[in-house]
Design a protein around this nucleic acid. Structure first.
Lengths: 100, 100
DNA sequence: ATAATATGTGACTATTTAGTCACTTGTCAA
DNA sequence: TTGACAAGTGACTAAATAGTCACATATTAT
């Protein structure tokens, strides 16, 4: 799967976007901490975190028996620059409003 | 399903992002035209287009027996402004690079 | 050592999703 | 008005996904 594709797929799930939000609010949380806010077992949360990690949106570091999760905004920025940009820029908006 | 959620889900599929790209290149294409570039029957394309339309990313207009598809960049811009922005802005990047 | 804690693995189920197909509806043109 | 053309519907299959559970591993503290 292409990297950009993995990022889009990872962002498709609201639970995963919520996890990113949680890390944006407080970075470096453990699995247990991240699970507490969610109506889901830690296994479900673990799977979501792995998807985010594979997509490069989350990086981890072990501290003893804990695993700390850190947000990595770079992939989002890449999507922003290379993909969202061409739709969000005024040119596209004008083009459509004229064509319709 | 929340509107923002529908947009993210719609963007998750590479075929659907390809359809948006095709419309960005030339707006107002019919189902048949959009299908030609894809290794898929028109039924598959139809389903993808319906997902895009429900998410508000594509709007349509009938012309006789044809259905014209137009790109609507507004939802992408909303995601850009309200969601991507808070990750793509320098603050988030700096925050993470300090915390790790 | 041992008990509690934090995370990991593999198998499993249920749901959703992608894609196809036979058949239908609506529209244009000869 | 009849035949060709563009799009739509409902049922169906195959694959991916979300989520759980029993069990296992690694680490900390007593």
């Amino acid at each position: 799967m292409l990297p950009v594709d993995e990022v889009f797929r990872a962002l498709a799930d609201p639970t995963r976007r919520g996890l990113l939000d949680a890390l944006l609010a407080r970075d470096g949380q453990t699995l247990g901490e991240l699970q507490q806010r969610l109506p889901m077992t830690r296994f479900g949360v673990m799977k979501h975190l792995r998807v985010l990690e594979k997509a490069g949106l989350v990086v981890t570091r072990r501290r003893g028996r804990e695993k700390l999760h850190f947000l990595n905004p770079v992939p989002i920025r890449l999507i922003h620059d290379r993909w969202v940009g061409k739709y969000a820029e005024p040119r596209a908006l004008a083009l459509v409003s004229v064509t319709r």
